[in-house]
Amino acid sequence: MSAREEFILDLKRGSLSLAEVCRRHGISRKTGHKWRARHNEEGHGGLADRSRRPKESPLRMAEEIERRVVQVRLEHPCWGGRKIREILSRSAPSGERVPAASTVTDILRRHGLLGGGTRGGAATFVRFEREEPNDLWQMDFKGHFAMAGGRRCHPLTVLDDHSRYNVILKACGGETRGLVQPLLEEAFRRYGLPRQILCDHGSPWGTGLRADGGAYGRTGLSLWLMRLGIDLIHGRPRHPQTQGKEERFHRTLAAEVLMREAVWKSLDHCQGEFDRWSRIYNQVRPHESLGMKTPGERYRLSPRSYPERMPEVESYYLAGDELRKVRSKGEITFGNRTYAVGQALVGEVVALREGAAGCREVYYCWKKLGTIDPSQATKSKGYQNRLLED
C-alpha cells in the first residue's frame, strides 16, 4: 500500500481530523486536501503520479501563432499588425491569448514581410460620416488602366458612406451613362435606394466646371436619379478630399488588387478579381475606422425599394404650380424673359412655384433648381438669364 493510500485509509477511519492526519503523515493540509479530492473524484487511480508536462507548450503555441501570422500576411500582403491580429482573434479558441498588434508586426519584421512603407505624413482633415446606412453613397471611377491588346479598364466604384460597404465594383470599358445607369439600377434592386449620392463634377453625372469654378448643368443621369427620389450632390470643385472614402478605397484597391497583377487580359479577368476581392473587403477585412469591424457587419439594406414603374415627373408638383416645358435650347420663359435651366432638361416639364418678393422657385420633380428674380433679369433678345442658386 502506498503512502497516499495509507493517508486516505487513516482519513476514512474518522477518528482524527484532516489536519492531524496530515501532521502525522508529514504533509501540508493543502496536499491533504488535494489527495482527498482526487480520491473522491477518481478513486485510487487519482492517487497516482501525474505528468508535470504542461498541457500546452508555450513554445509550440508561439510557433503555431507565428505560422498563422505569416499565412494571413501571405494571403493579404497589404495587411498590417492590427488587421492580422483581428483575424487571429476571430478564429482563436476560447481562452487562447492573441498576440498584440505590435507583436504581430515584430513577427512580420522577423520574416522579412514588412515593406518599406508608403505612407507619407498624415494630413490634417475633418472626417465626416453619415449616421445611417444608405443616407449617402459615394460614387466615382477609379483611374483607368491598361489591359492586353491596348484596351483600358475603367473601374466604377460605389461605397456606402456610413459602413464603407462596397456596393458596386465593376470593370467597365468606358465612362458613359449607358454603362453606369444599368449598374446603378441593378444595385438599387439588390440594396434599395439611397437618399443621396455624392460624385465629382465629371461625366457622366456632371458636366464639368465653368471658368469661374462653378458647376455646369445637370445630366440625363442626374434627372433619372431625381425621378427616383435620389439627390445627386457634387463635391467642392477641385477638392477630391470631399470624397475621401472613395479616394481611400481606390488606394486600397490599387494596393491589394491592381498592383498584384502583371498583365490584365480582359474585362472579364478584371471582374473576376474584383468580385473575389470585394467579398473579402466587405466580409473579412477589418476596417480600423469601424473599430476593426467589417463593412458587412455595419451595413443593412435600404427600406426604400426600387420602383418597377418610374414615377411621373408631374406627380411631384403642387396644385398651384405654373408648369413650363423646357425648350430646345434648355430654356424657359417667365415675364417676357428667358432663363436657362439646362440642356439635359430639354422636353421636360418644370414647375414654377411662388416665392418671396415676386420671385419664382423652379423645380424639377421634388428638386429645387434655382430661383427666378425678375428684378435682376434682362430682356435682351436671345439672352439666357441664369437661375439664382441658393
Rank of each mutant, 00 (worst) to 15 (best):
R127W: 02
R119K: 15
L114K: 12
E129G: 01
T157V: 11
P155V: 10
G120K: 14
A100T: 12
D140E: 07
K142I: 10
G115M: 09
L156K: 13
V126P: 00
I107Y: 06
A101F: 06
G95W: 00
F125H: 13
E129L: 05
A101I: 07
I107C: 03
G121V: 15
A146G: 03
G117T: 13
L108A: 04
A92D: 05
R90G: 01
P155D: 11
F141W: 07
K142M: 09
F128A: 00
A146D: 04
C153G: 00
R97Q: 12
P133V: 08
A100E: 10
E96K: 13
D106I: 05
V158I: 11
G116V: 09
G149Y: 04
R127V: 13
S91I: 09
P133F: 06
F125R: 15
H111S: 02
I107H: 04
G120W: 04
R109M: 05
P93E: 13
S89Q: 15
F125C: 02
D106M: 08
E131A: 03
W137Y: 11
G150W: 01
L136D: 07
K142G: 11
V98I: 14
R110M: 06
T103N: 00
G112T: 14
Q138M: 11
G149M: 08
G115T: 13
I107D: 00
F145C: 01
M139S: 11
F128H: 14
N134C: 10
T103K: 05
T103A: 04
R90H: 06
V126C: 10
T118V: 07
D135W: 12
L88D: 10
A92I: 12
P93C: 05
R90W: 04
S89R: 15
P99Q: 06
E132C: 00
S94L: 04
E131D: 05
G121T: 14
F141G: 07
L113V: 12
I107S: 05
T118A: 12
A100Y: 08
H111T: 09
G117V: 08
K142C: 13
L88I: 13
A122D: 02
P93T: 13
S91H: 09
R97Y: 03
R151G: 07
V104M: 01
M147P: 00
H154M: 00
L136S: 06
G117Y: 02
D106P: 00
G143I: 08
F145W: 15
T157I: 07
I107F: 02
S102F: 03
H111L: 02
R109H: 10
A100V: 03
G120T: 14
R109G: 06
G117A: 10
F145I: 01
E132D: 02
P99R: 07
E96I: 04
D135P: 00
